[in-house]
Simulated scan of single mutants.
Amino acid sequence: MSQKQIALACSVCGSRNYTVAANPNRTTRLEVKKYCKHCNKHTIHRETR
């Protein structure tokens, strides 16, 4: 059985660079500081639905 995947989108350019496994127990959207290859810097990436 495969896990459901969600995308992480850059808050600056909106590019969806990363995917992570969905967690049904999480009530708020995940926010992680990650590297964006389009912006060429570390930015906040937010969970998209």
Rank of each mutant, 00 (worst) to 15 (best):
C36G: 00
M1P: 05
N17Q: 14
V12R: 10
T27C: 03
A9P: 00
C36K: 01
C39T: 01
A7M: 08
C10Y: 02
A21F: 11
Y35C: 00
C39A: 00
K34R: 15
N17C: 11
A7R: 01
N17M: 13
A22W: 11
N17L: 15
C39S: 01
K37I: 08
N40A: 06
N25T: 10
K37W: 06
C10M: 08
C13E: 02
K4G: 10
V12T: 12
T28F: 06
N40Q: 11
K34P: 00
S11D: 12
Q5S: 15
P24Y: 06
K41R: 14
R29W: 00
C10E: 01
K34F: 11
Q3G: 12
R46P: 00
A21D: 07
R16F: 03
V20K: 04
L8D: 02
A21S: 09
A9Q: 03
P24N: 05
L30P: 07
T27H: 07
K33N: 10
P24G: 05
K37C: 05
E47G: 05
T48M: 13
K33S: 10
K37H: 05
K34Q: 13
L8F: 04
H42Q: 08
R16G: 06
K41V: 04
N25Y: 13
E31S: 15
V12C: 06
E47Q: 15
T19K: 11
N40W: 03
C13D: 04
L30M: 11
N23I: 14
R26K: 09
R26V: 05
K4H: 14
E47S: 07
A22S: 08
S2T: 12
N23G: 01
K41S: 04
E47I: 09
N23V: 13
R16C: 12
K33R: 11
Q5G: 12
T28D: 14
K4S: 14
R46L: 06
Q5N: 13
S2L: 12
C10G: 04
V12I: 15
V12Y: 07
C10D: 06
L30E: 07
L8N: 02
C13H: 01
K41W: 07
K33H: 08
L30G: 04
H42Y: 15
H38S: 02
S15L: 14
I6K: 08
T19F: 07
C39D: 10
R16N: 07
H38M: 06
V12N: 12
Q3I: 13
V20T: 05
E47M: 09
A7H: 06
N40S: 03
S15I: 15
Q3K: 14
M1I: 10
I6Y: 07
S2M: 10
M1S: 10
N25R: 10
S11W: 01
A7E: 11
N23A: 09
E47R: 07
S11K: 13
Q3C: 08
S2K: 10
R29L: 03
H45K: 07
A9S: 04
Y35I: 00
T27E: 12
R46G: 12
